[in-house]
């Protein structure tokens, strides 16, 4: 029985801290590296007792057979993932999952990223640029230390704006402040892609709705099997129930019920807290 049926071993060949809570991993997974397109994700499990978590693929190297994951340590599983080292192996890596981003020459595309979303929006900006779009990127973070992939995003964008909530770097404010300026002052924008915390994507959609600019968001709901079998990830889009794992992860942001998404993301907060406490106790006992 081959545990990782699609490739050798899921070894972490490179691991690097991008910020105090965000790490970049290059993971050996040749079949996924070859197959994956911008916007798709993998499901990762750390060990036999591990939960299945979805992580967006930030990049891939089909020749080298690796995929790049950029992970924010928000819960016990991602924290434990951060304690792994180069040479360690992930227990399961499943994918690529979800539908790829629709890439075509739309014209002027604004890519908005927030927090770890800057890693998710990067491959999309890259693909949009390659398809001939004029790409304007707006990336933001709470503070300078948490800003990731600035150089990567800059390299695939015609223009790049940076914001931090606390003003420690770039423009003081939210990505939506910068976006409002681009929409107001600049030439007509044909498409906005927004990826980040649900509250940020909601704010972006509220703004672009006024300008009637099509807006694509990538949703980060809780998943179990991630192949359409369980419905844990369901959201409402245009009043209809959709499964993020097979119908998404990208949707028309103007149709998404973000309040419902946010409520569902809070579903397991007490358990997440409990898992963190268990992890901390284990760390202390060591």
């Amino acid at each position: 029985m081959e545990r990782n049926g699609h490739g050798p071993l899921n070894e972490i060949v490179l691991m690097r801290s991008l910020s105090p809570e965000i790490k970049l991993y290059k993971v050996k997974s040749p079949l996924i590296a070859k197959k994956r397109k911008a916007g798709q994700f993998v499901v990762v499990r750390l060990d036999e007792r591990g939960e299945r978590i979805p992580l967006t693929i930030a990049d891939s190297d089909p020749q080298g057979g690796t995929i790049t994951l950029v992970v924010q340590e928000v819960g016990a599983t991602t924290k434990r993932m951060g304690m792994l080292r180069e040479g360690d192996k992930l227990w399961d890596v499943v994918g690529p999952l979800g539908k790829p981003t629709e890439i075509e020459n739309f014209g002027r595309v604004v890519c908005v990223g927030g927090g770890v979303g800057n890693a998710v929006v990067y491959p999309i900006a890259q693909a949009m640029k390659a398809a001939g779009n004029r790409v304007i990127s707006i990336i933001g973070a709470r503070t300078k230390d948490l800003l990731v992939l600035e150089e990567e995003n800059r390299a695939v964008s015609d223009e790049l704006f940076v914001t931090t909530d606390d003003g420690s770097y770039g423009r003081h404010g939210f990505v939506t402040d910068e976006l409002a300026k681009v929409l107001q002052d600049g030439p007509r924008v044909d498409l906005v892609v927004a990826i980040g915390p649900a509250i940020m994507m909601k704010a972006v959609c509220d703004l672009t709705k006024n300008y009637h600019i099509p807006t694509v968001v990538s949703l980060n709901s809780i998943m179990v099997d991630a192949t359409g079998m369980c419905g844990a990830c369901r959201v409402e889009v245009g009043g209809k129930t959709k499964f993020v794992c097979v119908d998404g992860p990208e949707f028309d942001g103007h149709q998404v019920d973000f309040d419902l998404l946010m409520a569902r993301l809070r579903m397991y907060l007490p358990e997440e807290q409990q898992a963190m406490e268990v992890l901390e106790q284990k760390a202390e006992a060591r």
Partner: peptide
């Protein structure tokens, strides 16, 4: 072969 999603992988 486990963790192999036919149609995707």
């Amino acid at each position: 072969k486990l963790s192999f999603v036919v149609g995707q992988t």
